[in-house]
Design a protein around this nucleic acid. Structure first.
Length: 346
DNA sequence: CGATGTCAAGGAATC
DNA sequence: GATTCCTTGACATCG
């Protein structure tokens, strides 16, 4: 038992700020326009101010804030982190002063277990660049790089081993920040636990992925407990939470004969993310892991709007769980008063 | 100005 | 071996 009550668990969201359409998450211009990390840092100052205004304590930065920084054919972009040293230090100080927990989630192209050495080497370069940015910002150990195991290449066991081999060869700054997440199609919670046993890499538990892929039928609470125990002492673990999308999908496809674009309605895939967090299921999860301490990265499509919404729902529907996040119990009255919950339209 | 096409990048299923 | 989906936003271009 901890001698003192643990500080409140944190809720965070990723990348794009939907509550303020004018806030950009990264300089996304194409290379002929010479986009730059310096521009992205300016955008991040505005985002951090928004987070501060809304008391959002955790945020995942876009993995593309340094555009083309490792692009093999565009060396003129490779010095951005060094060019922005002072700017990164200043941005990091803002985050530190406000207790803002930061992270990156490298893109789908970062594959540490690819059999193709070039792909793996390129992935390592990306991780090193992102780790370096966090280091220059002076971010604490809780600022991590979250990644998946990668592809199966027809042999999942070999894929796990290759990930572990690459992990051991990572430059220390990247290895120190890297954490591994269970995915929804290829590597289950049991799989990443096995990789942890080989490597010691901390694990992020993704709740939706656990429900999508759990052939070993691992128990929820036992598994979360094991995942949390993979983190070093003194570093708050983190889990990912999202609700599955249930709507029909509108899929556009080109008709071969006519060349015209047609739309079709297909059943939902449960790996898709819903706009918002289902409050009842979220509370059910929190109660299932009562007593465990972790931060929660929300991966809802409505981003910050989903965070603000669930933060409003929790005190109303589950005061016992809201307390874990430092949220005050809801005042008496209607569970969901009309018109009281819209965020600033801007 | 609104609609549409494109983007650095991989993997896997399908044919 | 080639095509398409996965999934994502925003830039860039077109009409």
């Amino acid at each position: 038992m901890t001698p003192f009550p643990a500080p409140p668990m944190r809720l965070g969201f990723a990348a794009k700020v939907l509550g303020r359409p004018d806030l950009k998450s990264n300089d996304a211009r194409k290379h002929p326009s010479n986009p730059h990390l310096r521009v992205s840092i300016g955008y991040l100052h505005a985002i951090f101010d928004y987070l501060h205004e809304h008391a959002v304590p955790m945020y995942r930065m876009s993995s593309d804030i340094a555009p083309y920084v490792t692009h093999p054919d565009l060396p003129r972009f490779h010095n951005q982190v060094r060019e922005c040293r002072a700017e990164l230090e200043a941005l990091g100080k803002v985050a530190r002063d406000r207790g803002l927990r930061l992270s990156f989630h490298p893109s789908q192209y970062v594959l540490l277990n690819s059999p193709d050495k070039k792909v793996t080497a390129q992935s390592v370069r990306d991780l090193v660049a992102q780790a370096e940015m966090l280091d220059v910002m002076g971010a604490g150990a809780e600022a991590v790089l979250v990644t998946h195991v990668g592809g199966t290449y027809g042999d999942p066991a070999a894929g796990r081993v290759r990930w572990a081999e690459t992990y051991k060869t990572l430059p220390e700054p990247a290895r120190r920040r890297l954490v591994l997440e269970n995915d929804d199609l290829r590597f289950s919670a049991a799989d990443v636990l096995a990789v942890h046993d080989r490597t010691g890499a901390p694990l992020v538990f993704d709740h939706q992925h656990y429900w999508c892929l759990n052939p070993e039928r691992l128990d929820l609470r036992e598994t979360v407990t094991k995942f949390l125990a993979t983190w070093p002492a003194g570093v708050r673990p983190k889990v990912h939470y999202s609700s599955p999308r249930t709507e029909l999908r509108e899929v556009k496809r080109k008709d071969k004969a006519t060349g015209k674009t047609k739309t079709a309605l297909l059943p939902p895939v449960w790996t898709g993310h819903a706009d918002f967090v289902n409050p009842f299921e979220f509370v059910q999860f929190l109660r299932a892991v009562d007593g465990l301490v972790f931060d929660v990265m929300l991966e809802a499509k409505a981003k910050d709007l989903a965070l603000l919404r669930v933060r409003q729902d929790l005190p109303r529907y589950a005061p016992d769980q809201a307390g874990r996040f430092g949220l005050e119990p809801a005042p008496d009255g209607e569970p969901d008063p009309a018109g009281a919950e819209e965020p600033d339209a801007g």
